[in-house]
């Protein structure tokens, strides 16, 4: 059974701030989704390989040949802020000082 604190935990990992009402609402909705998924578990899947991809392809690779990269000005125009040719973001705390 999905618990309210599980939803709060997942929300925190996804950097979502949820109100108490939203937590109740999503706990209920996610529980229904999981219940639906659990219907699959009721099927007899003995001997059926897990499928992660609809295509039966393996080893799709490309040659190690350089392709042109983007223009830097175009790239940095997408940044929230720029300094020294780099993306400037709020300081990350507690890491690699």
């Amino acid at each position: 059974m999905l618990r309210r604190e599980d939803v709060a935990h997942v929300a925190r990992l996804a950097r979502l701030t949820l109100s108490d009402e939203e937590l109740d609402l999503f706990t209920d909705q996610l529980a229904q989704v999981l219940e639906h998924a659990s219907d699959v578990a009721a099927l007899d899947l003995e001997g059926v390989e897990a499928t992660a991809h609809p295509f039966g392809l393996v080893n799709v690779v490309r040659a190690d040949e350089p392709q042109p990269s983007l223009d830097r000005d175009e790239v940095l125009a997408m940044a929230p802020d720029v300094e020294d040719g780099r993306f400037a973001v709020p300081r990350i705390l507690g890491e690699d000082q």
């Binding site: 300094e83 780099r86 993306f87 400037a88 973001v89 709020p90 300081r91 990350i92």
Partner: peptide, 10 residues
Amino acid sequence: HGADRSLVDY
């Protein structure tokens, strides 16, 4: 300006 920021090179 630029205090408490991190700069990223991709």
